[in-house]
């Protein structure tokens, strides 16, 4: 019970941070996605199904609270990420740290590719600028995930 309450408190805290803190950290009109960072941890710790369910629900809520004309972009990207990173649950003991790193950061890049591509549809965005936005979003997410991994390992057994 206390575990569930702890998770709920973390989810609410992360949503509040996304609503009110992320805008202060905006770089070239790209804000950090704290919900994506939380999704990385939930998927890695609890597996694919919780990852997809959380990714889809949180993504949809995120869309409802801000993406007026592109409802579903976050839900789509985060469902895929929830599934992909859910693979880490149970395989961390088998994979080498280098493979884990490539997998995690590659997945964050994948999220940026899906999300930025969907969001740029119909806006006549030059390909160079699209690539820059993808790179920047992936970089921001990677920096936050890397920082947090020093404080909280992806799965507790790694301590």
């Amino acid at each position: 019970m206390s575990q569930i309450l702890k998770i709920v408190a973390v989810v609410v805290g992360v949503f509040l941070a996304q609503l009110y803190l992320a805008e202060a950290m905006e770089v070239w009109q790209i804000r950090p996605d704290f919900i994506l960072v939380l999704l990385v941890y939930i998927s890695a710790r609890y597996g694919r199904i919780p990852g997809i369910l959380f990714g889809f629900t949180a993504g949809l809520l995120q869309d409802a609270m801000g993406s007026l004309s592109v409802l579903g972009a976050n839900a789509l990207a985060k469902s895929v990420i929830g599934y992909t990173l859910g693979t880490l649950n149970g395989t961390l003991a088998v994979w080498t740290p280098r493979i884990v790193n490539v997998y995690v950061y590659g997945t964050l890049l994948g999220h940026a590719i899906i999300y930025q591509t969907v969001m740029s549809q119909g806006l006549d965005l030059p390909i160079g600028m699209l690539l820059a936005r993808i790179g920047l979003e992936a970089f921001i997410s990677s920096v936050i995930v890397t920082g947090l991994r020093f404080l909280f390992p992806l799965v507790p057994s790694q301590v």
């Binding site: 694919r48 889809f56 869309d63 579903g72 789509l76 599934y83």
Partner: peptide
């Protein structure tokens, strides 16, 4: 294949939302 089926369902719903914005 329940996790894969769940992913497909989530992707289909997301795409439907995107197309019926």
């Amino acid at each position: 294949f329940r996790d894969l089926l769940l992913l497909i369902l989530a992707v289909i719903i997301s795409l439907m939302l995107l197309l019926t914005g």
